[in-house]
Write a protein that binds this DNA or RNA. Structure first.
Lengths: 232, 232
DNA sequence: CCGCGCATTTGACTCGGATCAAGGCGCGCG
DNA sequence: CGCGCGCCTTGATCCGAGTCAAATGCGCGG
């Protein structure tokens, strides 16, 4: 494995570029109740802006209202592994330590509710239901990451992609059509592949009649069963 | 990727073989308090016996007293991904659903405390500290699995192995020497490699003077810094 | 102490996906 | 409506790890 220096450089530039122009626009509309029963603050980010970075103090837990968020870890030479994409309704930023163990960025322009960790854990201490919900959320994330490990460790490129498409299809309710909110590079870094392999495999699936790609960001699921079988 | 049929067969035989002879010996010594504040039952398993299987109802949460446990997911054709090894003191069996999402087996003969999920969640509902501890355990597991994803998705064989050795060295307190409780196959399935690659990479590290292998199961860390750098 | 079985190592070769390198083209902007 | 910039696709080649096969040797039982 060689240094992906150019990529790394590009990414660094991108991040630094955005980091300055604090785009987290606290909407004056102010606080709205989070589903965890704690008042939260609504915030917005624009595409590719950093929400929090690895190593920063973890002050909040977030719920996506609109848009998509990615969390990831990155190596010194730029190799990146996206741990998860968070879609509307999903919760991210739950970390074991007082410091974030991963970075989070907006995949698309997005709107998020942030809840202070302190308030949350305070409430959880006294309210069993909140504690239970927090645990359930974390366990759900753990379930997903165990499946993700199986995919990263043991599946082929086409199996990975098929699983990804089926997973997205499940999470975004739309019959036999998936609107991908993220780039090919994001998909590659989520599935442990390169952008070229993702592209080629997409093309292959299309040539095989399994999917159709009317647009780069749209996928029509033509043979769901084939995808299911591939996704195993 | 071809079917690893022979391997799969071997594993299936192994599992079925052991499954019958119910070896979970409830020790009459009976219940001893778990650290989660709930009375648990002490149980023992022998090497390679199944503790629970994917799809079985998840009745208990476990803490290892002695020995080592592996949890894993397996594909129809035998490809296996070990999610985690659990060493003495560590807790496993925490799952989001009422059904186990992974299988667990004894890596070595081992002794475990089992706590009923019902009792645990009951206590968690009323006792904030217990709920907090449960959450902390789960978050810790999530932290580890995010790192594991980075390793599986983006690291080379020698980086994976170096990380594994450093991680084991940290978890088993013993200066510059690691006693590996698991086989090469287990290591391979944990790191998303084949047994041959694990073996070759070990040999390479030894030839480079980074480690020493007095026994198959023993590793002497000769150049800790080199390993650290590799593990990144 | 010897022989046997099995985990592990080693060797030769293959191959899936990575890398390196051009194009193509959709989308936004003027 | 045309132009240009990035994203994406496609092509050629390479290489790290997988596969297949065989030898080694450790640990255990007799």
């Amino acid at each position: 494995m060689h240094l992906q220096s150019s990529l790394a450089a590009t990414r660094t530039i991108l991040r630094d570029d955005f980091k300055g122009r604090s785009a987290l626009t606290d909407q004056a509309s102010g606080s709205s109740a989070d589903h965890l029963g704690v008042a939260g603050v609504r915030m917005t980010w624009r595409r590719n802006e950093e929400i929090f970075g690895e190593g920063e103090p973890a002050t909040c837990v977030y719920r996506v209202l609109k848009g998509v968020v990615r969390t990831y870890r990155i190596l010194a030479d730029g190799r990146r592994q996206i741990a998860e994409f968070f879609l509307p309704g999903e919760v991210f930023g739950l970390h074991a330590r007082a410091v974030h163990q991963a970075s989070a960025e907006a995949v698309t322009d997005c709107e998020v509710v942030a809840v202070r960790r302190g308030q949350l854990s305070e409430r959880a201490m006294t309210d069993g239901a909140t504690a239970h919900k927090l645990l359930a959320l974390t366990l759900h994330q753990l379930l997903r990451s165990e499946e993700h490990m199986l995919i990263l460790g043991r599946k082929t490129a086409s199996e990975r992609l098929a699983w990804f498409l089926m997973d997205m299809a499940e999470r975004i309710p739309a019959p036999n059509r998936v609107e991908l909110p993220m780039s090919r590079q994001d998909i590659a870094d989520y599935l442990g592949l390169t952008i070229e392999t993702v592209s080629r495999t997409m093309t292959q699936l299309q040539d095989d009649g399994v999917i159709e790609l009317p647009t780069r960001r749209q996928v029509v699921l033509r043979e769901r069963q084939t995808l299911m079988d591939l996704a195993a």
